[in-house]
Structure formats: structure tokens, C-alpha cells
Nucleic acid binder design. Structure first.
Lengths: 174, 174
DNA sequence: TCGATCTATATCGAACCAATATAGCAGGGT
DNA sequence: ACCCTGCTATATTGGTTCGATATAGATCGA
């Protein structure tokens, strides 16, 4: 799903600045399944404004740099709903950790253990973030519930099976 | 994890052509956690060859276009192991479906149901592909086992909770 | 004969991102 | 008073990636 559509979706829920949209990707639960960088957010907002799908209002702040607040327009709302009515792109999951586990037999056992420990800690952090959130709608509850069961299943499996790949690694000649 | 490192990893397991590497991404179980397109595979192989991390041998074929077979070099193998010894990039999961569920209240109930049915079918297909595979090592068994529990947990949760978002969608005025 | 599909290499224009640039501020340490 | 870290805020850049496209060899069914 392209960054313009994602920004439109976020703006259906309320006006926001480019900086706030980026923050939402890092904090508000979106980070588990969607993301964009400043390098694509600001150009996307610019084009959406050109296309009339979004309006922008500059706001001066005291003691802070000026900010640009973007709001979705009726045309933008229609464009977003139109995108949701069309077939969705498939999920993409990229996991350097999982890829690395395929090569665990080539690595020292301590390195494999360190990778697994790091991945478990990261996953626990994400699970804690989901648990600390407060879904405001059925959609949000569905999404955070799904994330929760995925992370829990991952953690359970990794804890139960980490010895399998750690044992294999032990035979690696260095 | 960049495409060069991924190609090096794949080539530690055996020589391959660019076309075969792409096929591996689609069939051999890698697709669940790693991918690259021709647009990045061929340039990556080219650069790896320039850097001496990979060697290439052209092969004529009868009744088929000629092929280029790439093999990893000792320097390439060392580079790959070096990459695995450094901190891994974090996982990235992008899910247009999950993002769309946040906006289920804006959609007709039949559309929400169709999205969920499609996602369930795709996930069942991926699960069947994992179940049909034959892991050849502890690393592969770990990876396919992890994928299996994640897909199973997802399917179970979605089936049990789909009514929550479908019910909400029903109130959407069109 | 044509279209679909597979094998096979490769490039292109557009999208994306991590890094960087610029600029406002607060707070803590030296 | 100065410096560093961290936050707020907009924006751009060079490199990476990808979907589409190009080219070319073939098989098979209609």
C-alpha cells in the first residue's frame, strides 16, 4: 500500500502534521504493520495537496518551529474509500532474523543465542506496547488482538525450540 | 537486510542463476520472510561479481536461452558470515489488510467480509506451502515451524473475531 | 497461427528510505 | 556561558528497491 493511501487513511481519523504522522508510525500501534519515512511522507503530503485530496494550514508556534497541519478533503476521503474497495496488495514480511536462522549451522553457538535473545527482547517490547495500548474501536481491538496472538505464538515457539538451532550451531568449526 | 547479503546467503547453499534465486523467493519457503525482484537481483549479482564475492560462469543451453550460473567465493562466504555477526536489521511487516481493518467501520459489511475471506485464503495457502515443505536442517525446521505457528495463530484469531469487525461495518452508511 | 506459459537476462522510471540539512527550544553538566 | 542531548518541525538527497517492460528462446493447446 503506497504512502499516499496510508497518509489519507491516517488523516481520516484526524488532522495531523507530517511529523505527527511519523510519530504515529512509531508509537500508536501502527508500527507493527505499516510504516513510512520522512523521505516519503513529506513528498506524499505535497502531492496529495496538489491533487486536492488534502488541505494544509500553516500554524505558527511560540518557542517552537512553525508547523503545517494537513486535513483530508471530501475528495480525499472518497479516494481513500475507493482504494479500500479495490483488491489490497499482499502483506510483506521481511525478517533478517528468520533468514539468519537458516544459516545458524555456520555460526558460533553464542552468536546464535545472542541473536535469539535480542529477537525475544524486541518481540517482548512490541507485545508490551500492544498490551499497553487502549483500542478505541472494534477495528483497533481486532488489530491489536491479532498482533498480540502473533507475537505470543512467536515467543512461545522460539523459547520452546531455540535449543534446536543453538545445538546445531555448536558444531560449527570456526 | 540488503539484496546483496541475501543473495550471498542463498549462494552459500549452492550455485544458482538470477532466475533461480527469484524462483526460490517464490517457492522454496523463503517467501514468508524475504524477497527481492529481478530489478534488484541482477544488479546485486553484478556488483557481487565486481567485488569478487561471487564468480559467474555462462552456460549455453539447448532449446533454451543461455544462463549465467553464480557461485560464492571464499571472500563472499566470509563477507556473508561477517554480516551475520553484526547486529541484524529489524523485521519489517507491512500489512495492507491489517491497516484496512482499522477502517472497517467505513466500509460495507460485504466488503469487509470479502477482505477477510481473501486474507484467510491467502494465509491458508501459505500455511499449506509450509506444511508441504520438507526441512533439511534444524535451521529450516525452526523457520518453517515458526511460520506455521504464526499462520495458525492468525487464522484462529481471525476466524474467532471476524464477526467483531463485520458487525461494526454493518452500521456504515453508504 | 496464436496465445499462454515457462525459461532467461537485463533495464528503466517511479517509489521509498536512511541520512542529512536547517532551525527552534529546554535541560543538565561543565 | 557554553556544550551536548533530546525534542519539535520541515524538507531534501543519494542510494536502494521494485513493478513493469524489453528482448529472446521454447512448448503446448486451441
Amino acid at each position: 500500500m503506497d504512502v499516499r493511501t496510508i497518509c489519507l487513511g491516517i488523516l481520516t481519523r484526524g488532522s495531523a502534521t507530517g511529523y505527527e504522522i511519523k510519530k504515529l508510525f512509531q508509537e500508536d500501534g501502527y508500527q507493527h504493520f505499516v510504516e513510512a519515512s520522512f523521505g516519503s511522507i513529506y513528498p506524499a503530503l505535497g502531492r496529495l495537496t496538489e491533487e486536492g485530496l488534502v488541505s494544509v494550514r500553516a500554524e505558527a508556534q511560540t518557542k517552537r518551529p512553525d508547523r503545517k497541519v494537513y486535513s483530508i478533503t471530501p475528495a480525499g476521503r472518497a479516494a481513500f474509500l475507493g482504494a479500500l474497495m479495490r483488491p489490497l496488495p499482499e502483506d510483506r514480511h521481511r525478517s533478517p532474523f528468520v533468514f539468519a536462522m537458516l544459516f545458524s549451522h555456520l555460526l558460533p553457538q553464542e552468536r546464535v543465542s545472542a541473536m535469539i535473545d535480542c529477537y525475544i527482547a524486541q518481540t517482548e517490547g512490541k507485545l508490551a506496547q500492544i498490551k499497553g495500548g487502549e483500542p478505541h474501536s472494534c477495528g483497533e481491538a481486532f488489530v491489536s488482538g491479532l498482533g498480540k496472538v502473533i507475537y505470543e505464538a512467536s515467543l512461545k515457539f522460539i523459547r520452546n525450540h531455540r535449543a534446536d538451532v543453538e545445538r546445531q550451531a555448536a558444531h560449527a568449526a570456526e
